[in-house]
C-alpha cells in the first residue's frame, strides 16, 4: 500500500478536527472576557493559571502544537502534489463557476490564519509562558491586562477581524471536507454535517470576532 493522497487527507482531517475541538474550548474559556472588567480580570487570570498548571491541558497543548505543524506540513505536501498534477494552465479559465471560492482557496485562507497565529502566539502565548508578567491581586499572572491593552488599538482589532473572517471561511469548508475525508457518505448524515458545519462556523467565528470589538468599545467608554 503506497496510497499517499487519501492518507495525506486523513492527516489533514484529523489535525483539522482536533483544532476545531480546541477552538470550542478556547472560545468557552475566553467568554470570561465579556464579564465586567474587574470580575473578568480575576476570572481570566485565574483560568489562565489553572490551564498553565494542569498536566492534561499540557498534553492537549502539545497535541495542538503538533496539529498546527502537521496540518501545515501536509498542506504543503498536498499543494505540491496538486501543482504537479495540473498540466499547462488554461488560456481561458472559468472553472470557478462550478464551485464556491473559499473551497478553492483553502491554502490562501490557511496562510492568512498561519500568519495571524504567529502574531497571536507572540503577543499572548509567548508573553504568558516566557516573560515575567506583573501579578494581579490574587497572585496570578495578569494576562488580562495584556489582552485588553492589545485590543485597545484599532489596527490590532482590525487585523483580528480580518484573520477571523479568513478562519470562518476555512472552517466552513474544512469542517465539511474533513467529514467527507473520514467517509461520511450517507445523504442523511451529509445533510446534518452541512448544518452542523454552518452552526459551528458561525458560533466560533462570531464569538471570537466579538471579543476584540467588545474590549475595544469598552475601552472607549
Amino acid at each position: 500500500m503506497k496510497a499517499t493522497t487519501l492518507q495525506h487527507k486523513l492527516w489533514m482531517s484529523g489535525t483539522g478536527l482536533f483544532m476545531c475541538f480546541f477552538l470550542i474550548i478556547h472560545l468557552l474559556g475566553n467568554l470570561q472576557l465579556f464579564l465586567p472588567p474587574e470580575r473578568a480580570r480575576e476570572q481570566f487570570n485565574w483560568y489562565s493559571h489553572l490551564l498553565a498548571g494542569n498536566i492534561i491541558i499540557e498534553i492537549v497543548a502539545y497535541v495542538l502544537y503538533a496539529s498546527i505543524i502537521g496540518h501545515t506540513v501536509y498542506a504543503i505536501l498536498i499543494t505540491r502534489k496538486n501543482a504537479g498534477a495540473n498540466g499547462t494552465k488554461y488560456a481561458y479559465d472559468k472553472r470557478g463557476a462550478a464551485s464556491v471560492w473559499y473551497s478553492r482557496n483553502m491554502g490562501l485562507l490557511g496562510t492568512i490564519i498561519f500568519l495571524f497565529l504567529i502574531i497571536h502566539f507572540k503577543d499572548f502565548w509567548y508573553q504568558y509562558k516566557f516573560t515575567n508578567l506583573p501579578l494581579d491581586a490574587k497572585g496570578n499572572k495578569d494576562l488580562y491586562t495584556i489582552v485588553v491593552k492589545a485590543y485597545q488599538q484599532l489596527w490590532y482589532v482590525l487585523v483580528y477581524e480580518v484573520a477571523l473572517i479568513a478562519l470562518g471561511f476555512h472552517l466552513l469548508h474544512g469542517f465539511f471536507s474533513a467529514a467527507r475525508t473520514l467517509g461520511v457518505f450517507h445523504p442523511k448524515y451529509v445533510k446534518w454535517i452541512k448544518i452542523l458545519g454552518w452552526i459551528y462556523t458561525l458560533v466560533i467565528t462570531l464569538g471570537f470576532m466579538a471579543m476584540p470589538v467588545f474590549v475595544y468599545l469598552n475601552s472607549l467608554s
Partner: peptide, 30 residues
C-alpha cells in the same frame, strides 16, 4: 491530485455522478 471537496466535478459531470461517491471511496479506504 488530491480531492479538495470543491464539488466542481459533480457540476460538470455529464452523468451527474454524485460527489458522495468520493465520500464512500474514503469510507471504503479507511
Amino acid at each position: 491530485g488530491h480531492c479538495s471537496n470543491t464539488e466542481a466535478c459533480e457540476v460538470e459531470c455529464p452523468q451527474e455522478i454524485s460527489v458522495l461517491h468520493i465520500a464512500r471511496m474514503n469510507y471504503e479506504y479507511n
